[in-house]
Design a protein around this nucleic acid. Structure first.
Lengths: 346, 346
DNA sequence: TTGAAAGCGCTAACAT
DNA sequence: ATGTTAGCGCTTTCAA
């Protein structure tokens, strides 16, 4: 039936020499259906003869045949891909999550597709929309997004796990560190170091659960210790380096000198705060006691010593992945995990 | 012709309520062809009447129609996606490249798909194969892969730009920092600090151009300065943290004490070297002069001061992207760019 | 100015 | 035990 007409579609580029299932079928003298069945390991179920199976596999190998994933996705409506949305690739916390997730995905035959929103809410929506349009099989979202109907909606139609933040008042699955307890312990140890005139707080986006819980820890610890919380040295903004700079700057302006002690609610904020101190005081770094959420290998060598909270990224990632896996295979229970974090005393 | 038969394909999952072009066509009372033409902005070219165009656009908007990218890819043989292959997400150098690349891709209507090989050659091949199978429109490869026919082959059939390393003896496009000159300058400044008994070198995979050039710089500077190069304190291995630890350990064993001065050929190696020093000497860090390829924000606060080479990631990324863009639009000229890097004196 | 239909490569229901 | 065929959603040629 003259399947060779090239009158249509000659405009497409495609891979130059990619062999299709049809080429295999022709060479093995069977139909494409049989090839598909055999190559997908369903040969037994369909009782394809051993001989035929061998022949097909041989031909496929000889031709170096690889099924076209795009066609497969279109037909199947799934892609063996998991989308991972983060705020910022340069944030080592996210990078570490991504590293573990990628390993897990690979082990389970998935591809991890990472996209960073650059902390831009609209961009983030676009990324997620794109992921969904491309039929990712699941979503892991670690984001600085505000509470949103959009996200709840997505989560209700595509298996989704949130990491690092909780969505208020919805029935989404999430995995986070034990922000409140770990921050509390860190701040407790910070103020135990010596007597401070004040302890400043530099936080991220006010509406994010991670910030809320870390701030709550800060307020409660100070209260317990009988230290007054001065709102003017409590700064929130965004979980970015720039916001950290601005916050530190504000605090210094506010009290007319560097604070005695400060807690930064993320690594990025710490980086910003330090940069601002350096900008203002250069080499003559003031004597500030610092504690921060998130850890970094180089903190072991930084002066002054910076106490930190090390989140258990492998555990967070594994939990998220395992929840997602169960959702993708149909479970609809509400799964939430709170992972402990470790204080690195310095 | 009873298009509504659902006898076949009822097994697929797909998105629950995704509207297809056909729904739009039906509602707008035109054919799918017309919808496609109009929505792709070819209405004028095909002289579709203004009225029809409006009607179609209205319906599409009302139905919230989004063309299915998978179907589109299958038909067109392209995906508006660029694959970015790196060794390690946790390496800030790659993360920074990725950040800029993602911005550029977004601005040009592409999606960046990042995948990390974890420094595993086989894994990397698999990733690239996967990318190609999925019809990425272009590849940017920043990898610790050895010279390989596989890569040359890929590069000859898919627009590909290598970053951070050159492929020996092939006609591939690449973008790298000026490894030789910048490393030379850094090492020069390192040995100018004071008189050293020895200056050790901790490098990455011996066959990678980045390592070769940085090592060459080391040898030449020492020679120029009349300092003998002792092979036993020149360690190569891999661009990883673990390799850095091992190398530092070897050097210490070799000379029976920590070296006076050391140059690490990447941030990851520095991290490893520092960790090993810490493991062995704890808080009583020996007085070592250190310089490293790659910079990090926290290095500003690390003691002892660590001189570094800051690669121009935005420039590298932009160059790679621009070369790739030109290749994707048909250019086949051999484009190569060497970007200057900056020394951060500390 | 628009529509019909082929076909991208694959899978699965159904027929044989 | 294997083949035929519809159809995933889209674009484009050709016809009208």
């Amino acid at each position: 039936m003259g399947k060779s007409t090239r009158s249509h579609s000659q405009t497409r580029r495609g891979a130059p020499e990619s062999i299709s299932i049809e080429a295999v079928a022709r060479k093995a003298k069977v139909s494409t259906a049989t090839v598909s069945i055999v190559l997908n390991g369903k040969g037994e179920r369909y009782r394809i003869s051993k001989a035929t199976q061998e022949r097909i596999k041989d031909v496929a190998k000889k031709l170096n045949y690889e099924p076209n994933p795009v066609a497969r996705s279109l037909r199947l409506g799934r892609t063996q891909t998991i989308g991972f949305v983060i705020a910022d690739l340069a944030n080592p916390f996210f990078a570490e999550l991504a590293t573990t997730l990628e390993r897990l995905c690979h082990e389970h035959g998935y591809l991890l597709q990472i996209s960073a929103s650059g902390d831009d809410v609209a961009m983030e929506e676009e990324i997620i929309r794109n992921f969904v349009a491309k039929s990712v099989d699941g979503l892991i979202i670690a984001t600085s997004h505000e509470e949103s109907d959009f996200l709840s909606d997505i989560a209700s139609r595509t298996p989704t796990v949130f990491v690092d933040r909780k969505i208020k008042g919805s029935n989404c699955c999430w995995v986070t560190s034990d922000n409140y307890e770990s921050a509390k312990e860190a701040i407790r140890r910070l103020i135990d170091k010596r007597e401070f005139r004040e302890v400043a707080y530099i936080g991220g986006a006010p509406s994010l659960s991670s910030n809320i819980e870390r701030l709550q820890a800060y307020e409660n610890v100070l209260e317990e210790a009988g230290v007054p919380v001065a709102r003017r040295i409590v700064k929130e903004g965004a979980f970015t380096c720039d916001a950290g700079k601005a916050a530190m700057s504000d605090i210094i302006e506010e009290i007319g000198r560097p604070p005695d002690a400060v807690f930064t609610a993320s690594y990025t904020l710490l980086e910003g705060a330090l940069a601002e101190l350096k900008r203002r005081y250069g080499a003559a770094q003031p004597d500030i006691a610092i504690a921060t959420y998130d850890d970094h290998p180089l903190l072991d060598y930084v002066a002054p010593p910076i106490l930190s909270v090390r989140q258990d990224c492998p555990l967070l990632a594994e939990s998220a992945f395992s929840i997602l896996t169960s959702m993708m295979s149909g479970s609809s229970g509400l799964q939430r995990i709170i992972a402990p974090a470790r204080i690195i005393q310095r």
